[in-house]
């Protein structure tokens, strides 16, 4: 399970994440991607984070005892 983080200063609204995972991402009015869900375990989230041209998406793995950076 991951928590989605988006670096607002990096996001340039390429929309790659929305193309790859429309259920997980959308574009805000100020043209910054935002997550539509709090947590996800969808493979599409990993694909979207890897494909972001600005490397603006980070997935933080959620564990019962600790969290660590996943992507």
């Amino acid at each position: 399970m991951y928590e989605i983080e988006i670096d607002r200063s990096l996001c340039s609204a390429y929309g790659t994440c929305i193309d790859l995972a429309p259920d997980l991402f959308e574009l805000s009015d100020d043209l910054i991607a935002v997550a539509r869900v709090r947590e996800t375990d969808a493979e599409a989230a990993v694909k979207a984070a890897s494909a972001c041209p600005m490397s603006a998406i980070r997935l933080v793995e959620i564990r019962a005892d600790a969290t660590r950076r996943a992507a």
């Binding site: 200063s9 997980l24 709090r38």
Partner: peptide, 18 residues
């Protein structure tokens, strides 16, 4: 400038879409 920082869904003030 465009507000910096990190966006998580819990930062938003509207209900979850999914």
């Amino acid at each position: 400038a465009t507000k910096g920082g990190t966006t998580r869904v819990r930062d938003r003030d509207r209900p979850l879409a999914v």
